[in-house]
Write a protein that binds this DNA or RNA. Structure first.
Lengths: 256, 256
DNA sequence: CCAAAAAACGAGCGAGCGCTCGTTTTATAC
DNA sequence: GTATAAAACGAGCGCTCGCTCGTTTTTTGG
Protein backbone atom coordinates (compact mmCIF):
# COMPACT_ATOMS: atom_id res chain seq x y z
CA UNK A 1 0.00 0.00 0.00
CA UNK A 2 2.18 2.85 -1.24
CA UNK A 3 1.02 6.22 -0.02
CA UNK A 4 3.37 8.57 -1.77
CA UNK A 5 6.77 8.73 -3.36
CA UNK A 6 9.59 11.19 -2.95
CA UNK A 7 12.31 11.12 -5.52
CA UNK A 8 11.91 7.44 -6.27
CA UNK A 9 11.85 6.42 -2.63
CA UNK A 10 8.58 5.65 -0.92
CA UNK A 11 7.34 7.76 1.98
CA UNK A 12 5.03 5.39 3.79
CA UNK A 13 6.01 6.24 7.32
CA UNK A 14 7.16 9.01 9.55
CA UNK A 15 10.51 7.28 9.87
CA UNK A 16 11.13 7.38 6.13
CA UNK A 17 10.13 11.03 5.99
CA UNK A 18 12.53 11.93 8.77
CA UNK A 19 15.32 10.03 7.04
CA UNK A 20 14.87 12.15 3.92
CA UNK A 21 14.58 15.58 5.53
CA UNK A 22 16.94 16.75 8.23
CA UNK A 23 14.66 18.67 10.55
CA UNK A 24 16.69 18.17 13.70
CA UNK A 25 16.88 21.06 16.13
CA UNK A 26 20.54 21.63 15.21
CA UNK A 27 19.85 21.77 11.48
CA UNK A 28 16.94 24.15 11.95
CA UNK A 29 18.92 26.42 14.27
CA UNK A 30 21.83 26.48 11.84
CA UNK A 31 19.47 27.94 9.26
CA UNK A 32 18.14 30.43 11.79
CA UNK A 33 21.73 31.50 12.38
CA UNK A 34 22.27 32.00 8.64
CA UNK A 35 19.09 34.00 8.32
CA UNK A 36 19.78 36.26 11.29
CA UNK A 37 23.57 36.47 11.13
CA UNK A 38 23.26 40.25 11.07
CA UNK A 39 21.66 40.56 14.50
CA UNK A 40 23.27 37.62 16.32
CA UNK A 41 26.38 38.92 18.07
CA UNK A 42 27.93 35.55 18.86
CA UNK A 43 30.73 34.85 16.42
CA UNK A 44 31.45 31.16 16.63
CA UNK A 45 28.80 29.15 14.76
CA UNK A 46 29.12 26.05 16.95
CA UNK A 47 28.42 28.03 20.11
CA UNK A 48 25.67 30.05 18.47
CA UNK A 49 23.83 27.00 17.11
CA UNK A 50 24.06 25.12 20.39
CA UNK A 51 22.68 28.01 22.41
CA UNK A 52 20.05 28.87 19.81
CA UNK A 53 18.87 25.29 20.13
CA UNK A 54 18.49 25.67 23.87
CA UNK A 55 16.74 29.02 23.46
CA UNK A 56 14.31 27.82 20.80
CA UNK A 57 13.59 24.55 22.56
CA UNK A 58 12.78 26.34 25.79
CA UNK A 59 10.78 29.06 24.06
CA UNK A 60 8.59 26.50 22.28
CA UNK A 61 7.98 24.61 25.51
CA UNK A 62 7.08 27.67 27.56
CA UNK A 63 5.13 29.49 24.85
CA UNK A 64 3.09 26.43 23.93
CA UNK A 65 2.25 25.89 27.59
CA UNK A 66 1.19 29.41 28.53
CA UNK A 67 1.48 31.64 25.47
CA UNK A 68 4.43 33.58 24.12
CA UNK A 69 3.34 36.87 25.66
CA UNK A 70 2.89 35.32 29.10
CA UNK A 71 6.33 33.77 28.97
CA UNK A 72 8.88 36.14 30.48
CA UNK A 73 12.46 36.41 29.32
CA UNK A 74 13.56 35.84 32.90
CA UNK A 75 11.79 32.50 32.84
CA UNK A 76 13.34 31.74 29.46
CA UNK A 77 16.77 32.60 30.82
CA UNK A 78 16.31 30.42 33.87
CA UNK A 79 14.92 27.40 32.02
CA UNK A 80 17.43 27.59 29.18
CA UNK A 81 20.41 28.01 31.53
CA UNK A 82 21.48 31.30 29.98
CA UNK A 83 21.45 34.76 31.51
CA UNK A 84 19.29 37.69 30.48
CA UNK A 85 22.29 39.38 28.93
CA UNK A 86 23.32 36.28 27.03
CA UNK A 87 19.88 36.01 25.46
CA UNK A 88 20.28 39.46 24.00
CA UNK A 89 23.37 38.32 22.13
CA UNK A 90 21.05 36.10 20.07
CA UNK A 91 18.14 38.44 19.45
CA UNK A 92 17.58 42.16 19.82
CA UNK A 93 14.09 41.88 21.31
CA UNK A 94 11.33 39.47 22.14
CA UNK A 95 9.59 40.06 18.80
CA UNK A 96 12.72 39.06 16.89
CA UNK A 97 12.81 35.77 18.78
CA UNK A 98 9.24 35.14 17.67
CA UNK A 99 10.04 35.99 14.05
CA UNK A 100 13.06 33.67 14.08
CA UNK A 101 10.85 30.71 14.88
CA UNK A 102 8.06 31.71 12.51
CA UNK A 103 10.56 32.25 9.69
CA UNK A 104 11.98 28.77 10.11
CA UNK A 105 8.49 27.23 10.07
CA UNK A 106 7.67 28.97 6.82
CA UNK A 107 11.07 28.00 5.44
CA UNK A 108 10.55 24.34 6.28
CA UNK A 109 7.13 24.30 4.62
CA UNK A 110 8.54 25.77 1.44
CA UNK A 111 11.48 23.42 1.45
CA UNK A 112 9.47 20.24 2.02
CA UNK A 113 6.16 20.87 0.26
CA UNK A 114 7.46 23.22 -2.42
CA UNK A 115 9.27 20.52 -4.34
CA UNK A 116 7.23 17.34 -4.77
CA UNK A 117 9.11 14.50 -6.51
CA UNK A 118 9.20 15.03 -10.27
CA UNK A 119 7.89 11.55 -11.08
CA UNK A 120 4.56 12.61 -9.60
CA UNK A 121 4.20 15.55 -11.99
CA UNK A 122 1.73 13.70 -14.19
CA UNK A 123 0.05 11.77 -11.40
CA UNK A 124 -2.53 13.87 -9.54
CA UNK A 125 -3.59 11.01 -7.24
CA UNK A 126 -0.04 10.29 -6.18
CA UNK A 127 0.82 13.95 -5.84
CA UNK A 128 -2.20 14.65 -3.64
CA UNK A 129 -1.29 11.70 -1.44
CA UNK A 130 2.29 12.83 -1.25
CA UNK A 131 1.23 16.34 -0.24
CA UNK A 132 -1.10 15.05 2.47
CA UNK A 133 1.50 12.66 3.88
CA UNK A 134 4.37 15.14 3.65
CA UNK A 135 2.34 17.89 5.31
CA UNK A 136 1.36 15.64 8.16
CA UNK A 137 4.82 14.17 8.70
CA UNK A 138 6.35 17.64 8.55
CA UNK A 139 4.03 19.01 11.22
CA UNK A 140 4.53 15.88 13.30
CA UNK A 141 8.31 16.22 13.15
CA UNK A 142 8.25 19.94 13.93
CA UNK A 143 5.16 19.72 16.11
CA UNK A 144 5.94 22.41 18.71
CA UNK A 145 7.09 24.79 15.96
CA UNK A 146 3.78 24.53 14.11
CA UNK A 147 1.68 24.81 17.25
CA UNK A 148 3.66 27.93 18.07
CA UNK A 149 3.18 29.49 14.63
CA UNK A 150 -0.51 28.62 14.64
CA UNK A 151 -1.35 29.81 18.13
CA UNK A 152 0.78 32.94 18.20
CA UNK A 153 -0.28 34.13 14.76
CA UNK A 154 -2.27 37.04 16.10
CA UNK A 155 0.72 38.26 18.09
CA UNK A 156 2.79 38.58 14.91
CA UNK A 157 3.73 41.95 13.51
CA UNK A 158 2.04 42.92 10.27
CA UNK A 159 4.84 41.46 8.19
CA UNK A 160 4.69 38.29 10.28
CA UNK A 161 0.97 37.89 9.76
CA UNK A 162 1.27 38.55 6.06
CA UNK A 163 4.00 35.92 5.86
CA UNK A 164 1.85 33.37 7.68
CA UNK A 165 -1.21 34.07 5.53
CA UNK A 166 0.81 33.92 2.31
CA UNK A 167 2.31 30.62 3.42
CA UNK A 168 -1.09 29.16 4.21
CA UNK A 169 -2.50 30.22 0.85
CA UNK A 170 0.55 28.83 -0.96
CA UNK A 171 -0.02 25.46 0.70
CA UNK A 172 -3.66 25.51 -0.31
CA UNK A 173 -2.60 26.31 -3.86
CA UNK A 174 -0.54 23.11 -3.90
CA UNK A 175 -3.61 21.09 -2.94
CA UNK A 176 -5.75 22.98 -5.44
CA UNK A 177 -3.18 22.31 -8.17
CA UNK A 178 -3.30 18.56 -7.63
CA UNK A 179 -7.10 18.69 -7.51
CA UNK A 180 -7.28 20.69 -10.76
CA UNK A 181 -5.03 18.19 -12.54
CA UNK A 182 -7.17 15.35 -11.27
CA UNK A 183 -10.40 17.00 -12.36
CA UNK A 184 -8.94 17.74 -15.79
CA UNK A 185 -7.91 14.11 -16.12
CA UNK A 186 -11.35 12.92 -15.07
CA UNK A 187 -10.06 11.33 -11.89
CA UNK A 188 -11.78 13.54 -9.32
CA UNK A 189 -15.37 14.76 -9.03
CA UNK A 190 -14.94 18.20 -7.49
CA UNK A 191 -17.25 21.12 -8.24
CA UNK A 192 -15.30 23.81 -6.37
CA UNK A 193 -11.57 23.16 -6.31
CA UNK A 194 -10.66 26.17 -4.18
CA UNK A 195 -13.29 25.34 -1.56
CA UNK A 196 -12.25 21.69 -1.44
CA UNK A 197 -8.61 22.63 -1.00
CA UNK A 198 -9.72 24.92 1.81
CA UNK A 199 -11.48 22.01 3.51
CA UNK A 200 -8.43 19.75 3.29
CA UNK A 201 -6.20 22.20 5.16
CA UNK A 202 -8.05 22.10 8.50
CA UNK A 203 -8.04 18.29 8.42
CA UNK A 204 -4.25 18.38 8.38
CA UNK A 205 -3.98 21.22 10.87
CA UNK A 206 -6.12 19.34 13.35
CA UNK A 207 -3.37 16.78 13.72
CA UNK A 208 -0.97 19.17 15.38
CA UNK A 209 -3.46 21.55 16.97
CA UNK A 210 -5.25 18.72 18.79
CA UNK A 211 -2.47 16.16 18.86
CA UNK A 212 -3.00 15.34 22.53
CA UNK A 213 -6.55 14.22 21.75
CA UNK A 214 -5.47 12.00 18.87
CA UNK A 215 -2.63 10.53 20.86
CA UNK A 216 -4.93 9.70 23.74
CA UNK A 217 -7.03 7.72 21.28
CA UNK A 218 -3.96 5.79 20.19
CA UNK A 219 -3.91 7.25 16.68
CA UNK A 220 -0.45 7.21 15.10
CA UNK A 221 0.69 9.66 12.41
CA UNK A 222 0.55 6.86 9.87
CA UNK A 223 -3.02 5.95 10.79
CA UNK A 224 -4.08 9.58 10.68
CA UNK A 225 -2.52 10.03 7.24
CA UNK A 226 -4.44 7.03 6.01
CA UNK A 227 -7.68 8.29 7.53
CA UNK A 228 -7.29 11.73 5.94
CA UNK A 229 -6.35 10.26 2.56
CA UNK A 230 -9.33 7.91 2.72
CA UNK A 231 -11.68 10.68 3.83
CA UNK A 232 -10.52 13.12 1.17
CA UNK A 233 -10.43 10.60 -1.65
CA UNK A 234 -13.94 9.43 -0.83
CA UNK A 235 -15.12 13.02 -0.72
CA UNK A 236 -13.65 13.81 -4.13
CA UNK A 237 -14.95 10.63 -5.70
CA UNK A 238 -11.96 8.32 -5.55
CA UNK A 239 -11.86 4.90 -3.90
CA UNK A 240 -15.24 3.90 -5.27
CA UNK A 241 -16.83 3.85 -8.72
CA UNK A 242 -16.64 7.23 -10.42
CA UNK A 243 -18.40 8.54 -13.51
CA UNK A 244 -15.27 8.60 -15.62
CA UNK A 245 -13.12 5.51 -15.09
CA UNK A 246 -9.69 5.78 -13.51
CA UNK A 247 -6.80 5.94 -15.96
CA UNK A 248 -3.17 5.05 -15.63
CA UNK A 249 -1.99 5.43 -12.08
CA UNK A 250 -3.72 2.50 -10.44
CA UNK A 251 -3.15 2.37 -6.68
CA UNK A 252 -6.49 3.36 -5.23
CA UNK A 253 -7.17 4.11 -1.60
CA UNK A 254 -8.53 1.40 0.61
CA UNK A 255 -10.31 2.61 3.70
CA UNK A 256 -11.32 5.69 5.68
CA UNK B 1 -33.30 21.69 -0.74
CA UNK B 2 -33.98 21.22 2.97
CA UNK B 3 -30.81 21.11 5.01
CA UNK B 4 -32.10 20.46 8.47
CA UNK B 5 -35.20 20.82 10.58
CA UNK B 6 -35.65 22.20 14.04
CA UNK B 7 -38.90 21.47 15.78
CA UNK B 8 -40.88 21.24 12.59
CA UNK B 9 -39.46 24.46 11.16
CA UNK B 10 -36.73 24.36 8.56
CA UNK B 11 -33.29 25.77 9.29
CA UNK B 12 -31.99 26.50 5.83
CA UNK B 13 -30.38 29.82 6.51
CA UNK B 14 -28.55 31.82 9.12
CA UNK B 15 -31.54 34.12 9.37
CA UNK B 16 -33.89 31.30 10.34
CA UNK B 17 -31.41 30.02 12.90
CA UNK B 18 -31.11 33.44 14.50
CA UNK B 19 -34.89 33.76 14.61
CA UNK B 20 -35.15 30.55 16.62
CA UNK B 21 -32.34 31.15 19.10
CA UNK B 22 -31.91 34.42 20.93
CA UNK B 23 -28.15 34.86 21.00
CA UNK B 24 -28.14 38.64 21.20
CA UNK B 25 -25.52 40.29 23.36
CA UNK B 26 -28.19 41.30 25.89
CA UNK B 27 -29.62 37.79 26.20
CA UNK B 28 -26.16 36.28 26.60
CA UNK B 29 -25.12 38.84 29.20
CA UNK B 30 -28.33 38.31 31.15
CA UNK B 31 -27.34 34.68 31.50
CA UNK B 32 -23.83 35.66 32.54
CA UNK B 33 -25.39 37.83 35.22
CA UNK B 34 -27.44 34.88 36.48
CA UNK B 35 -24.45 32.63 36.54
CA UNK B 36 -22.18 35.09 38.34
CA UNK B 37 -24.71 36.86 40.54
CA UNK B 38 -22.59 35.98 43.55
CA UNK B 39 -19.55 37.99 42.47
CA UNK B 40 -21.20 40.86 40.57
CA UNK B 41 -21.74 43.70 43.04
CA UNK B 42 -24.11 45.78 40.91
CA UNK B 43 -27.67 45.29 42.17
CA UNK B 44 -29.95 46.48 39.40
CA UNK B 45 -30.15 43.89 36.60
CA UNK B 46 -30.83 46.41 33.85
CA UNK B 47 -27.69 48.36 34.66
CA UNK B 48 -25.63 45.23 35.15
CA UNK B 49 -26.66 43.66 31.84
CA UNK B 50 -26.09 46.87 29.90
CA UNK B 51 -22.60 47.34 31.31
CA UNK B 52 -21.73 43.66 31.01
CA UNK B 53 -22.61 43.93 27.35
CA UNK B 54 -20.19 46.83 26.92
CA UNK B 55 -17.50 45.01 28.87
CA UNK B 56 -17.84 41.72 26.99
CA UNK B 57 -18.14 43.40 23.60
CA UNK B 58 -14.97 45.39 24.20
CA UNK B 59 -13.12 42.43 25.70
CA UNK B 60 -13.88 40.26 22.68
CA UNK B 61 -12.74 42.99 20.29
CA UNK B 62 -9.49 43.70 22.09
CA UNK B 63 -8.64 40.10 22.99
CA UNK B 64 -9.31 38.80 19.50
CA UNK B 65 -7.09 41.53 18.07
CA UNK B 66 -4.06 41.17 20.34
CA UNK B 67 -4.74 38.37 22.82
CA UNK B 68 -6.42 38.43 26.19
CA UNK B 69 -3.19 38.61 28.14
CA UNK B 70 -1.88 41.52 26.10
CA UNK B 71 -5.08 43.47 26.62
CA UNK B 72 -4.80 45.62 29.74
CA UNK B 73 -7.72 46.42 32.00
CA UNK B 74 -6.90 50.10 31.58
CA UNK B 75 -7.42 49.72 27.85
CA UNK B 76 -10.65 47.82 28.50
CA UNK B 77 -11.84 50.58 30.82
CA UNK B 78 -11.02 53.28 28.30
CA UNK B 79 -12.61 51.54 25.33
CA UNK B 80 -15.72 50.42 27.20
CA UNK B 81 -16.30 53.83 28.75
CA UNK B 82 -16.13 52.52 32.31
CA UNK B 83 -13.53 53.18 34.98
CA UNK B 84 -11.10 50.72 36.46
CA UNK B 85 -13.08 50.66 39.67
CA UNK B 86 -16.36 50.12 37.89
CA UNK B 87 -14.97 47.08 36.09
CA UNK B 88 -14.22 45.45 39.41
CA UNK B 89 -17.88 45.68 40.35
CA UNK B 90 -18.53 43.14 37.59
CA UNK B 91 -15.68 40.70 38.11
CA UNK B 92 -13.18 40.06 40.89
CA UNK B 93 -10.18 39.58 38.63
CA UNK B 94 -9.11 39.30 35.02
CA UNK B 95 -9.38 35.52 35.08
CA UNK B 96 -13.00 35.66 36.16
CA UNK B 97 -13.79 37.87 33.17
CA UNK B 98 -12.27 35.21 30.94
CA UNK B 99 -14.27 32.45 32.60
CA UNK B 100 -17.50 34.43 32.23
CA UNK B 101 -17.11 34.47 28.47
CA UNK B 102 -15.94 30.86 28.20
CA UNK B 103 -18.83 29.69 30.38
CA UNK B 104 -21.36 31.38 28.15
CA UNK B 105 -19.83 29.82 25.04
CA UNK B 106 -20.06 26.36 26.56
CA UNK B 107 -23.60 27.11 27.72
CA UNK B 108 -24.69 28.19 24.26
CA UNK B 109 -23.25 25.04 22.67
CA UNK B 110 -25.12 22.82 25.12
CA UNK B 111 -28.32 24.77 24.69
CA UNK B 112 -28.29 24.75 20.89
CA UNK B 113 -26.64 21.46 19.94
CA UNK B 114 -27.73 19.49 22.99
CA UNK B 115 -31.35 19.27 21.98
CA UNK B 116 -31.83 18.41 18.29
CA UNK B 117 -35.48 18.41 17.13
CA UNK B 118 -37.23 15.22 18.20
CA UNK B 119 -38.58 14.46 14.74
CA UNK B 120 -35.00 13.80 13.63
CA UNK B 121 -34.46 11.11 16.26
CA UNK B 122 -34.93 8.31 13.77
CA UNK B 123 -33.32 10.11 10.83
CA UNK B 124 -29.50 9.98 10.97
CA UNK B 125 -29.06 11.84 7.69
CA UNK B 126 -31.31 14.69 8.76
CA UNK B 127 -29.79 14.81 12.24
CA UNK B 128 -26.26 14.95 10.93
CA UNK B 129 -27.22 17.77 8.58
CA UNK B 130 -28.96 19.59 11.38
CA UNK B 131 -25.90 19.27 13.63
CA UNK B 132 -23.57 20.57 10.93
CA UNK B 133 -25.82 23.51 10.08
CA UNK B 134 -26.61 24.38 13.69
CA UNK B 135 -22.94 24.24 14.69
CA UNK B 136 -21.94 26.52 11.87
CA UNK B 137 -24.76 29.02 12.36
CA UNK B 138 -24.09 29.06 16.09
CA UNK B 139 -20.42 29.87 15.63
CA UNK B 140 -21.27 32.42 12.96
CA UNK B 141 -23.74 34.20 15.24
CA UNK B 142 -21.38 34.17 18.23
CA UNK B 143 -18.24 34.43 16.11
CA UNK B 144 -16.04 36.56 18.40
CA UNK B 145 -17.04 34.44 21.40
CA UNK B 146 -15.89 31.25 19.72
CA UNK B 147 -12.68 32.74 18.40
CA UNK B 148 -11.98 33.91 21.93
CA UNK B 149 -12.66 30.51 23.49
CA UNK B 150 -10.59 28.76 20.83
CA UNK B 151 -7.57 31.06 20.87
CA UNK B 152 -7.38 31.68 24.60
CA UNK B 153 -7.87 28.04 25.54
CA UNK B 154 -4.28 27.64 26.74
CA UNK B 155 -4.67 30.63 29.05
CA UNK B 156 -7.55 28.98 30.87
CA UNK B 157 -7.19 27.69 34.39
CA UNK B 158 -7.23 23.93 34.79
CA UNK B 159 -10.98 23.89 35.34
CA UNK B 160 -11.44 26.11 32.31
CA UNK B 161 -9.38 23.81 30.11
CA UNK B 162 -11.18 20.74 31.37
CA UNK B 163 -14.49 22.45 30.63
CA UNK B 164 -13.40 23.30 27.08
CA UNK B 165 -12.08 19.81 26.38
CA UNK B 166 -15.23 18.17 27.79
CA UNK B 167 -17.35 20.45 25.63
CA UNK B 168 -15.38 19.59 22.51
CA UNK B 169 -15.65 15.86 23.16
CA UNK B 170 -19.38 16.16 23.85
CA UNK B 171 -19.86 17.84 20.48
CA UNK B 172 -17.89 15.10 18.77
CA UNK B 173 -20.08 12.53 20.54
CA UNK B 174 -23.13 14.11 18.93
CA UNK B 175 -21.59 13.68 15.48
CA UNK B 176 -20.47 10.17 16.32
CA UNK B 177 -23.99 9.32 17.52
CA UNK B 178 -25.56 10.35 14.23
CA UNK B 179 -22.87 8.46 12.32
CA UNK B 180 -23.42 5.30 14.38
CA UNK B 181 -27.14 5.40 13.74
CA UNK B 182 -26.52 5.85 10.04
CA UNK B 183 -24.04 2.99 9.91
CA UNK B 184 -26.45 0.75 11.81
CA UNK B 185 -29.20 1.62 9.34
CA UNK B 186 -26.94 0.90 6.39
CA UNK B 187 -26.96 4.54 5.27
CA UNK B 188 -23.32 5.42 5.82
CA UNK B 189 -20.12 3.59 4.93
CA UNK B 190 -17.81 4.50 7.80
CA UNK B 191 -15.12 2.19 9.13
CA UNK B 192 -14.08 4.28 12.14
CA UNK B 193 -16.90 6.37 13.54
CA UNK B 194 -14.84 8.11 16.22
CA UNK B 195 -12.13 9.08 13.76
CA UNK B 196 -14.64 10.35 11.23
CA UNK B 197 -16.39 12.46 13.86
CA UNK B 198 -12.98 13.82 14.76
CA UNK B 199 -12.41 14.84 11.15
CA UNK B 200 -15.76 16.63 10.91
CA UNK B 201 -15.03 18.92 13.84
CA UNK B 202 -12.07 20.80 12.30
CA UNK B 203 -14.09 21.39 9.13
CA UNK B 204 -16.62 23.32 11.19
CA UNK B 205 -14.03 25.04 13.35
CA UNK B 206 -12.23 26.34 10.29
CA UNK B 207 -15.23 28.52 9.52
CA UNK B 208 -14.75 30.73 12.54
CA UNK B 209 -11.01 30.35 12.99
CA UNK B 210 -10.31 31.46 9.40
CA UNK B 211 -13.47 33.39 8.69
CA UNK B 212 -11.61 36.34 7.19
CA UNK B 213 -10.19 34.04 4.51
CA UNK B 214 -13.57 32.57 3.63
CA UNK B 215 -15.22 35.98 3.61
CA UNK B 216 -12.56 37.32 1.27
CA UNK B 217 -13.47 34.53 -1.13
CA UNK B 218 -17.11 35.54 -0.98
CA UNK B 219 -18.22 32.37 0.79
CA UNK B 220 -21.42 32.86 2.80
CA UNK B 221 -22.32 30.76 5.86
CA UNK B 222 -25.03 29.04 3.82
CA UNK B 223 -22.59 28.12 1.05
CA UNK B 224 -20.06 26.85 3.56
CA UNK B 225 -22.69 24.71 5.27
CA UNK B 226 -23.59 23.22 1.92
CA UNK B 227 -19.95 22.59 1.06
CA UNK B 228 -19.27 20.85 4.38
CA UNK B 229 -22.44 18.75 4.13
CA UNK B 230 -21.56 17.76 0.59
CA UNK B 231 -17.96 16.99 1.51
CA UNK B 232 -18.88 14.95 4.56
CA UNK B 233 -21.71 13.06 2.92
CA UNK B 234 -19.51 12.14 -0.02
CA UNK B 235 -16.81 10.99 2.35
CA UNK B 236 -19.20 8.75 4.30
CA UNK B 237 -20.76 7.30 1.18
CA UNK B 238 -23.88 9.40 0.78
CA UNK B 239 -24.80 11.41 -2.29
CA UNK B 240 -23.71 8.69 -4.69
CA UNK B 241 -24.45 4.99 -5.11
CA UNK B 242 -23.70 3.05 -1.93
CA UNK B 243 -23.40 -0.67 -1.32
CA UNK B 244 -26.59 -0.82 0.67
CA UNK B 245 -29.35 1.28 -0.90
CA UNK B 246 -30.72 4.33 0.89
CA UNK B 247 -33.95 3.74 2.76
CA UNK B 248 -36.72 6.09 3.81
CA UNK B 249 -35.40 9.58 4.31
CA UNK B 250 -34.88 10.68 0.73
CA UNK B 251 -33.30 14.14 0.48
CA UNK B 252 -29.77 13.46 -0.68
CA UNK B 253 -27.00 16.01 -0.89
CA UNK B 254 -26.24 17.69 -4.17
CA UNK B 255 -22.78 19.22 -4.46
CA UNK B 256 -19.56 19.88 -2.63
C1' DC C 1 51.36 30.76 30.91
C1' DC C 2 49.17 34.92 29.94
C1' DA C 3 47.13 38.86 27.49
C1' DA C 4 43.38 39.70 24.22
C1' DA C 5 38.94 38.42 22.45
C1' DA C 6 34.63 36.28 23.04
C1' DA C 7 30.87 35.08 25.73
C1' DA C 8 28.09 35.15 29.73
C1' DC C 9 26.54 37.40 33.69
C1' DG C 10 22.74 39.69 36.59
C1' DA C 11 21.47 43.90 39.27
C1' DG C 12 19.08 47.82 37.99
C1' DC C 13 16.12 51.05 34.91
C1' DG C 14 11.68 52.95 33.55
C1' DA C 15 7.27 51.53 32.05
C1' DG C 16 3.11 49.30 32.50
C1' DC C 17 0.56 45.73 34.77
C1' DG C 18 -3.58 43.96 37.89
C1' DC C 19 -5.87 45.52 41.58
C1' DT C 20 -7.58 48.61 45.74
C1' DC C 21 -10.05 52.01 48.10
C1' DG C 22 -11.19 56.66 49.73
C1' DT C 23 -13.84 59.83 47.27
C1' DT C 24 -17.33 61.82 44.11
C1' DT C 25 -21.34 61.50 41.24
C1' DT C 26 -25.86 59.75 40.17
C1' DA C 27 -30.31 57.54 41.13
C1' DT C 28 -33.99 56.60 44.35
C1' DA C 29 -37.67 57.42 47.90
C1' DC C 30 -40.47 60.09 50.94
C1' DG D 1 -35.62 69.10 48.85
C1' DT D 2 -32.84 66.27 51.04
C1' DA D 3 -31.11 61.82 53.10
C1' DT D 4 -29.63 57.44 51.69
C1' DA D 5 -28.19 53.91 48.78
C1' DA D 6 -26.08 52.58 44.43
C1' DA D 7 -22.74 53.17 41.08
C1' DA D 8 -18.73 55.08 39.08
C1' DC D 9 -14.44 57.18 39.63
C1' DG D 10 -9.15 57.25 39.12
C1' DA D 11 -4.72 58.07 41.55
C1' DG D 12 -1.72 55.09 43.73
C1' DC D 13 0.22 50.52 45.49
C1' DG D 14 3.31 46.63 44.86
C1' DC D 15 5.05 43.98 41.39
C1' DT D 16 6.94 42.14 37.08
C1' DC D 17 7.99 43.12 32.56
C1' DG D 18 11.46 43.91 28.51
C1' DC D 19 15.75 45.60 28.13
C1' DT D 20 20.68 47.64 29.25
C1' DC D 21 25.38 47.69 30.43
C1' DG D 22 29.39 47.62 33.49
C1' DT D 23 31.55 43.62 35.14
C1' DT D 24 33.21 38.82 35.39
C1' DT D 25 34.26 34.39 33.42
C1' DT D 26 35.75 31.45 29.70
C1' DT D 27 38.11 30.53 25.44
C1' DT D 28 41.71 31.27 22.26
C1' DG D 29 46.42 31.62 20.17
C1' DG D 30 51.36 32.24 20.40
Amino acid sequence: MTLARTGGKRMDSLREFQARFDLSMEALCARILDRHAATIRVKKPAVAVANLARIVETTLTLANRKGFHSMSLRELAEQSGLSMGALYAYFDGKDTLLMMILGQVVGAVEEVLGHPPEDLAGDPVGRLRWLLAAHLYLTETMHPWFVFAYMEAKAFSKEGRDLAVANELATERLFAGALEDGVRGGLFAVSDVEMTAGLIKPLLQDWYVKRAKHRKRGVTPERYVEAVIGFVESAIGLGRTVEKPTVGTGENASAA
